[in-house]
Design a protein around this nucleic acid. Structure first.
Lengths: 197, 197
DNA sequence: GCGGTTATGTCAGCCGCTGACATCACACTA
DNA sequence: TAGTGTGATGTCAGCGGCTGACATAACCGC
């Protein structure tokens, strides 16, 4: 139908589309320029061309704008653990889960680096990062329990996995010519095993 | 000397002593009665007989009133690790550190329980708890490095220790007739070892 | 006594965050 | 074509956490 070629002149639409995306962009830019603390939500909103109130409709709080895609990683890890071969011992299943997640991050080292620098510069953001890791550990523990692992072994294995992952991830973003993340992860699990022998 | 029996009438002193202690008490009580979110700093200050401003002179933020004694625990752990026999492998040294800390908590299970219930009921407080654990892990890692343990093993061993401690602590507060904390801790370290075999 | 120190009070104000209500393009239906 | 939602946004008032700046007065050492 010819109805689809209506001229959507700017004057016709009430608001620019994708205000959420614009808010994310504006926030990232301002955090980089001024720092997290020094950036007010009002300033983010203004740069995005919306109201402060609209910011809080899209993000639960100021920090959340940096942690929007956090669930995808957790889902990947949990999925990997769930689908690990049922006869694997707990920690091996956990290792498989994190290996699965590694592929999801592999191409995005540059982005991960920028983000982790902003986070490293602000204690409040580190808290949020830790919450995310704790949430991953809880979800992995839950998944292990569903595989028949009893407490407290399920939670402990999950925490060991998170520790290994965190260590590997830290190395990965810190070194420019780092090996593949999955390789670093499997190495970290190896080191955990070696530490307890 | 007779100078010590001066009558310190209330009217003589400008302020009641130990305002920090009164603030802690008032906060604990109000958090228990109303919950953390519903308790305002103004209310805490009023019950303690001081100004809101004074609260923030003693505690960096509202949550900190629950985490005041956190450094003592960390110091005990770090001290225990530092003074462990130098020829012990990393994880064994860490285990000794946490065993040292156990004694510090042993008599305070009731208090620890009340505190952990308040924390469990509020996400913001859980963040702070995680920060505390992360800070302990960082300090333990540092201590291991001073003992000659290289990265990333130092950080990994520290994280493993924190995971074991956290697991043991959780069991300890959760069960009324729990064994001694030190016993649970050594058991948790044993489970960590078993998981990696 | 005297001056510095220390703990507190007082006040103004920013900023994160929320609830309540108004607005108006758009989509859907009769 | 008119009427009727619906959903994303704006507007406004306000609370509560938190801070800086300055004043006050007991205490401590000299």
């Amino acid at each position: 139908m010819s109805g689809s070629d209506i001229n959507y002149d700017e004057a016709m639409v009430r608001w620019e589309p994708d205000s959420r995306g614009r808010l994310e962009q504006a926030a990232l830019a301002l955090f980089g320029e001024l720092g997290f603390e020094e950036t007010t939500v009002a300033a983010i909103a203004q740069r995005a061309g919306v109201t402060e109130r609209t910011f809080f409709r899209h993000f639960a709080d100021k920090r959340e704008v940096l942690f929007g895609g956090g669930t995808a990683l957790q889902d990947a890890i949990v999925g990997g653990v769930r689908e690990a071969s049922p006869d694997l011992p707990p920690l091996a299943a956990v290792a498989e889960g994190f290996a699965a997640a590694a592929e999801l991050l592999q191409g995005r080292r540059q982005f991960a680096l920028a983000r982790s620098e902003i986070i490293a510069a602000n204690p409040g953001l580190q808290e949020r990062e830790l919450i995310k890791l704790a949430s991953i550990a809880a979800a992995v523990g839950e998944t292990l329990r569903a595989r028949g692992v009893d407490e407290p072994d399920a939670s402990l294995a999950a925490q060991l996995g998170v520790a290994a992952f965190h260590s590997a991830f830290g190395q990965w973003v810190a070194t420019a010519d780092a090996p593949a993340l999955s390789e670093l992860i499997s190495e970290a699990f190896g080191r955990v095993a070696a530490l307890t022998s």
